[in-house]
Design a binder for these strands. Structure first.
Lengths: 194, 194, 194, 194
DNA sequence: AATGAATGAGGATTCATTCAT
DNA sequence: GATGAATGAATCCTCATTCAT
């Protein structure tokens, strides 16, 4: 039952299925067959649209990162002051969507993949660079150590995210966000110091 | 030419080889054959000693974690005050041994494996719990929010570690350590605050 | 935008594309998709016109053989004596068109296919029979051993052709032709002998 | 049932099976599975010993060519004069072993493969060069046109071989050999001529 | 007439694991 | 204790062919 203009629909379905399967099994040990099946098509078609397993994974990663980017933009929409914008960035990082188990799994496995695949590494770099410049831009009016604080903030965000991915009895999402904000506020309070 | 008492030597060789290979390729996509070859023996022997691939990986992970534990103990040896002990714990986390590329790779991949393998998850929990209780024990004399600060410290340590694993132009090891200490000091300075 | 009367045009395009692709890759490992693409149409249409891959190949082979037949007829046109006609036949065999790299490749692969496909074998037989009878017909006035000499001539033609297909530093086309003619002349000189 | 020192036995079995299968189906469209099955082992083992399909084919080709070389040496053993040695070379080319249907098939398919695979091409070159120098060496005492006659002889040998591979009602092996010798003799008779 | 969506069988290759020696 | 021979399942990928539109 071939239809016309299926390409975007199929690609979307495959990306969703990839994230779903990676999340389900918790690793990249997912076969193209499994993904295609979950997406409701044959494995051949998956190859037809993406060319290969790696590219399917990359597309899924790209999707996750662009989702995150959209999240950030949405949160930023309502913010006006630099500090509100920093809050918005942190809020986006701890938005519920990023903590769906399959999304956590996907992030984590993509982190690992980044060590091997140059494509994955590139994507991750872009994400990191964007986050960094976003933070620096909004920290600059508030502190003379914008770069320094941005690094720390990014690290603590990643750290909490990682712990959420791996541990159980942890502060919840809201608390983690509060802990990051606490860090930010401590750093900004330093401003007045020496 | 089978020898007697080879078991510990063989096991050690296999564990080292596992870490080496995992680090080299940057993922768990390492075959028993590769590991055995690097360890200078046949793949059959690797199975003989460990029973299977998963157990080889677990043994390697256990080794890394115990290395880290030893590191912490060594650093703690010279410390007397609680704050010195906190410093020692952080110092151990950023010790050069943990930043050998293959060790970083191994940690990261084991993190991911923890999502799949209950054995790996258990090990990671033990490490996290030990770090946590170490931190809490030494924070308690210094702050009323020991649990809180311990969580934050652990997160920021992990966060920096992760960033070292994935990015290039980053503050170096010493700087990262300083950034964690800065966090600790800020938190302890809060103590006096309301 | 389907057009009327496209059939012959499409078929021609597919046949040319087949010869082109077979020549390019140097084997029958050519996909219908590649052929169709080179012919500027979808793979579905290729099937529509020919029914299947084998038939596309057969059509291409038939084309090559008929090209060769036309070549022979053209050369024969100007010839009047039996010997001139023999010369014409040899000349056709070594005509530049047959030595285009893709044509050589195609011939060779079709030879191989003849072992498997009865259709291909049939075509090859027809070609061989026609060449043979052409030679015999013109040898008869010149020698009592027409059959014998025809076999030898055909063999030496094929032999040179094969060597052109596979080797590099060889006598060129013109020289090869001369060598065949030399053979013919030696044979005809024998006529007078005992 | 693993045994020791199986390697040469397995390799031999695989080479024989390869020639057998290629001969049976008349093309290189033979799967590693088929070959391995005919050789009485799993497909995995075939890869273990040869590394890949291409190398299996190359090994088979190398075997055929070395068989042919041995044939030539055997025939040459009893020959003393240059002419006898020429006879021996031709005899080897038309030896029954080379005309086993699967050997013919294998030769032909390897000819085609030579267009694609550099390894195959190299082997074929070596064979051709050796035949050529053998012929030239023995022609030199008998004619001033040794190179010339060697080329013609090689071509006519190949031509007859090719025709045997593809046609049915043909002079038989012995007759083909006689036809080649006839060519040689005619050429050598020229010697005296102008 | 023409497209390209879709399938699914088939094939090369890899690898953990077992086991005779 | 040690080897490496052997298996076979699993996986990615390709492609001829079909068919709705």
């Amino acid at each position: 039952m071939p239809k016309l203009g299926m390409e975007p629909i199929r690609r979307k379905a495959l990306i969703d299925a990839t994230i779903g399967e990676v999340g389900r099994v918790g690793s990249l040990d997912v076969t193209v067959g499994q993904i295609a099946k979950r997406a409701g098509m044959s494995s051949g078609l998956a190859h037809h649209y993406f060319g290969g397993k790696d590219q399917i994974f990359l597309a899924a990663m790209r999707h996750i990162l662009s989702q995150f980017g959209a999240q950030v933009r949405r949160e930023l929409a309502g913010a006006t002051t630099p500090f509100e914008r920093l809050q918005a960035i942190v809020a986006a990082s701890f938005h519920a969507d990023n903590f769906a188990p399959e999304v956590i799994s996907a992030w984590l496995t993509f982190y690992v993949q980044a060590q091997t695949s140059s494509g994955a590494r590139r994507l991750l770099r872009i994400y990191a660079a964007r986050l960094h410049s976003n933070l620096v831009y909004n920290l600059r009016p508030l502190t003379g150590r914008a770069e320094h604080v941005a690094h720390g903030t990014a690290a603590i965000i990643d750290g909490y995210y990682l712990r959420h991915a791996l541990q159980d009895n942890l502060p919840d999402r809201a608390q983690s966000k509060a802990l990051v904000m606490e860090y930010l506020e401590m750093q900004l309070a330093q401003k007045a110091a020496p």
